[in-house]
Design a binder for these strands. Sequence first.
RNA 1: GCCCCCAUCGUCUAGUGGCCUAGGACGCCACCCUUUCAAGGUGGUAGCACGGGUUCGAAUCCCGUUGGGGGUACCA
Length: 515
Amino acid sequence: MGQKARVVSEALYSDVSRAQSDPIGAPRVRFAPSPTGYLHVGSARTALFNWLFARRHRGVFILRIEDTDAERNREEWVDGIFSALSWLGLEPDEGPYRQSERGELYAAAIEKLVSAGKVYACDCTRDEVLRRTKQATTPGYDRYCRDRGLAPGPGRLLRFRVPDEGNVVVRDLIRGDVEFACSSIEDFALTKSTGAPLFVLANVVDDIEMRITHVIRGEDLLPSAPKNVLVWNALGGPELPVFAHLPILVNERRQKLSKRRDPVSVDLYRDQGYLSSAFCNYLALLGWSPPGGEEIMQIEQLVSSFDLEDVSHSPAFFDVRKLTHFNGEHLRAMAGEEFVSTCLPWLAGLVTQSRSLEVDAFRQLAPLVQERVSTLAEVPEMVGFLFVDLPEVKEVAWEKVMRSPVSKAILDAAASAYRCCDWAKEPIREATLQIAENAGMKLAKAQAPIRVAVTGATVGLPLFESLEVLGRAKTLERISAAFERMGAENIVLENAEPENTANTGPEPASGVAPV
RNA sequence: GCCCCCAUCGUCUAGUGGCCUAGGACGCCACCCUUUCAAGGUGGUAGCACGGGUUCGAAUCCCGUUGGGGGUACCA
């Protein structure tokens, strides 16, 4: 942050601290999305920063739907935004306001600007403007209608009369003062030719009316900030708001996240099993870093340490791998019961018999699941073996460990040992260890065929705990099913004696892969 | 084209002139732990875009270059 920015922010922060003891001066911020059907991750980050700032300084977080464009205004388009915000826990203190319901305000503002001569009517068609722009000296619109004295009316849009000289200074908490020469700003349109208000107008009218103190938004809006300032002053608004233009979020090609090729909908992450707390945590660290350095934080910690002056300047890449790591951390930080109830909806598709029985089985293994998953979506696969009659054995798993006489011998031994041992984790482990020793193998290697027979996979939850919860009957049933399949595949049983691999040729021992 | 913003490991970042031999986190690699897989622990990998200044001293301040990005609608 440059020297200028620091000076500016110090001045503003003294304002803020004054505001804390004076509710009338408390910061008022707004998140102002347009209806898009879903919440974009970049928008979510903007909403989060606004919300955090408001919470941190005991201010007010306002939600305003910028739906002045009638063609893009459908009710379901806003519902998606509401539900995503609510999932994230970013509930507004005021609103939602809808610009489509605030037409009188804009009409009054237009009236005011017209009578003050701040705007003028223009009846140029887009083609005409485009054609003339090419040889014009001014940027954009060539001011053709500026002095024609056209009366406002149907078919004529209203343009802002940008001063010929001077600069517009945008005070930005993150970037310092940004100056724009008036000569580089075109006479922009404030209304459509139908008279309908455009974004630049409605946005400023509402910010004034809602007494917004801090405009926190994406950097892509920085070029429109000088226009906002111009209109604000023309409207005779009170003290200008302070801007804070957040660095944008980019993809791996360093371009603004696009809905066409990047996964940008917040819903997508919710549906993939990410926790809103982890999502907010990760989003907060995109462009901001906590003074302490500790990255894994709950929402309350975010609120207590957040500040706009710690926001960085450069675009940030949305890295789903780091998000996933954060999610795992948040999952593991949950209380056991909370983790169980959070998982339940993800298990709904697996329920076969008695729900309470299955929930109970899941609850027993949940602590082991909890430290192994990084998204909720991984849960069903991990415990699926509990809820079926016979597991679906993955072919690669079968190929890898079951095509061996040694494996068949282990299953054979396990079948008899498991028939009589006490059915609990420890005795099962003891019995299995005995089998391994008899076969001259490590426990790690010997448990593999049992795991495949019982769960269908080479990796999974700790085996003996899994067997205990599964129950003796199902365990034996699965082992014998695997045993029979091996018979059908002409895998012969051999002695469970310790073998001398040097003499038995290349086949047997190497047939069991360590898993 | 014009206007504006930005520039530290692959990524997110700490760094506000000496504490920097540049710190942390994700990822990756190795080892430890271990009933598989994770988790956890330990260690490692890798960076100040370039060129000029200012200064006793620059990742840090200034200028320029280069590179990247955003904006440029009767969308928001």
